[in-house]
Each structure stands twice: as C-alpha cells, then as structure tokens.
C-alpha cells in the first residue's frame, strides 16, 4: 500500500470513530472491560502458577519436634534424620529462633509471647536432594518418635495445580464469551459506519476500487477502537500490579516464594492485551464488512 493511500485510510478511520461517538464509546468500553478481566485473570493465573512451582521446587521438609520431648530425645531425633538417604542437609531452629523470625516479619504483636509463653515448637528443616524426594522423606519422618508434625511443599503444590486447572478452564470460557461480546459490539459499531457510507462504498465498487482499498478504513477504525479500549486496562493493570508487587513482595521477603517481576512479565501482558484489543477490533470490522463487499 502506498503512503498516500494509508494516510487516507487512517484519516477516514479517525473521522468515523469521532462521528460514531457514542457507539464507539460503547465498543471501547466493551473492549476495556473484557481486557481488564482477561488481563487480571492472566496476571493472577501466572502468579499462582509461579507460586505453585516455587512450592513444588521447595526441597525443604519441616519437622516439628514434640513439645514433650526433652533435650536428649531432640538430639536423637536429629541424628536419626541425618541417616535418611535422600537428605542433603539439616538445619535446626529452636522455638525461640522461630519466634524471633515471626516477630521480624509480622511485627511486635507477637512480642507478648515471651519466654515460656512461646507457642511455637523446635524445628528441624531438612533439605532433600531433589524436590520429588520430599513426600517420601516426610512419610518416613512421620513414623519417628517425638515428631509432632511434618510439613512439606509438594502436597500443597499438588492441590494448587489442581485448583488452577479448574480455574483455567472456567476462565477460558468466560474470557472467550467476553471476547465474542466485544467483537460483536465492535462489528455493530462498524456496521453503522458502513451503513452511513453505503453510497460511497457503492461508488467505490462501481469505479473499480479494490476490496482491500474499501476495507482498510473500516479495519483501521475497528483496530483504533480496540487499541483505545486496550489502553484503559493496560494502565489500570500496570498501576495495580506494580503497587501490588511491592506490597506482596515485602511479605514474601525471606521466603522461598516470589511473584513474577513486572519486567518482563507486565510488558508481555500489556503487549498481549494491546494485541488482543487490536485483533478484536479488526476481526469485528472484517466480519461486518464481509457481506457488503459481495458483487
């Protein structure tokens, strides 16, 4: 396409968006709402996925020592743990130490548990050689004396993955329905433009304008609506994600877990939303112009 021609198409498209003010606004809003949901959904899904794999990759098994156990029994337990084949390293954290950590990350309210009031237990933190070993090690440890409780990430990860599988399916259906609605609204908006310009289209066809020459202004009009519609959720999600990221990461400090970094995740997500917006718009207009171009 020649530069002169594209300039003409783009001018025509912008004129139309303005002329159809309210319809354009409705279509822009539909795209905005759709993409806001799509974008939030993707952001949440990907982060939960990230957390789940963080959990899954966690090689640690936490072994809580029974409160009734004395010093000697506790040391014996430690020695037994060392004998397990898949264990790479063992770390011991006394209940005092555990409390200090909690106070460190959640604040002074926990300060009231001092000395013998400490409700926490002594803990052995086992690191296994591989993440897959945790389940087996945990069940082996649970059999041992003086063990109050055994925790490991794998079990929770499985539950999380399962939950996400369902969320993904339900989400995909909702997203698809929303996208179809947006396409429908855009194609209706474009239909009004086409209708108001039907004499021009008729003349263009009669004097031999090519189908793409006739189509372009409408496709661009749809794409502009889609793009404007996408800019709204892009701004909202960018703002919320960056702020949310800082806040949540503060809580996750010192743990094995983290959210996806805004760069590059947010950049990809925004590019995806802009892309979907433009595509929804273009498809919407191609759909409505199709039948006008026969003959």
């Amino acid at each position: 396409m020649r530069a002169r021609t594209s300039g003409r198409h783009i001018r025509e498209a912008f004129k139309s968006v303005k002329r159809n003010g309210w319809m354009s606004l409705a279509a822009v809003s539909a795209v905005a709402v759709t993409l806001l949901l799509v974008g939030s959904f993707i952001a949440i899904l990907f982060n939960v996925n990230k957390l789940a794999s963080d959990i899954e990759n966690d090689v640690s098994v936490r072994v809580y020592v029974d409160l009734a156990a004395d010093e000697e029994q506790r040391v014996a337990l430690g020695e037994n743990l060392e004998k397990i084949e898949q264990v790479e390293s063992i770390e011991y954290s006394s209940k005092k130490n555990e409390l200090d950590q909690v106070v460190g990350s959640y604040g002074d309210e926990f300060n009231l548990f001092e000395g013998d009031d400490n409700p926490l237990r002594d803990v052995y933190i086992i690191n296994t050689l591989k993440p897959e070993d945790t389940a087996e090690v945990a069940s082996e440890v649970a059999e041992m004396d003086n063990v109050a409780e055994v925790n490991y990430g794998g079990a929770e990860a499985d539950r999380l993955f399962e939950l996400m599988g369902t969320a993904r399916n339900v989400g995909a259906i909702v997203v698809l329905a929303l996208i179809l609605t947006a396409v429908f609204l855009i194609s209706n908006t474009i239909r009004i433009t086409i209708f108001s310009r039907r004499t021009e289209i008729e003349i263009m066809k009669l004097v031999g304008a090519t189908n793409w020459f006739i189509r372009w202004p409408f496709v661009i009009e749809g794409a502009i609506i889609g793009l404007i519609g996408a800019l709204v959720p892009v701004s909202i999600i960018t703002f919320v994600y960056i702020n949310g990221f800082d806040t949540i990461m503060k809580y996750l400090a010192g743990t094995y877990f983290s959210l996806l970094n805004p760069a590059p995740f947010l950049i990809y997500l925004n590019a995806l939303m802009l892309g979907i917006g433009i595509l929804i718009g273009a498809i919407g207009s191609i759909l409505s112009i199709r039948k006008f171009l026969k003959v």
Binding site: R2, T5, V207, F213
Partner: peptide, 11 residues
Amino acid sequence: AYAMEVVEKNP
C-alpha cells in the same frame, strides 16, 4: 476526483 482517488491514481 473521488473516482480516481479510490483507484489510487496520482494526484
């Protein structure tokens, strides 16, 4: 002019 513009004739 319209009839010529839409078949992309030179201005």
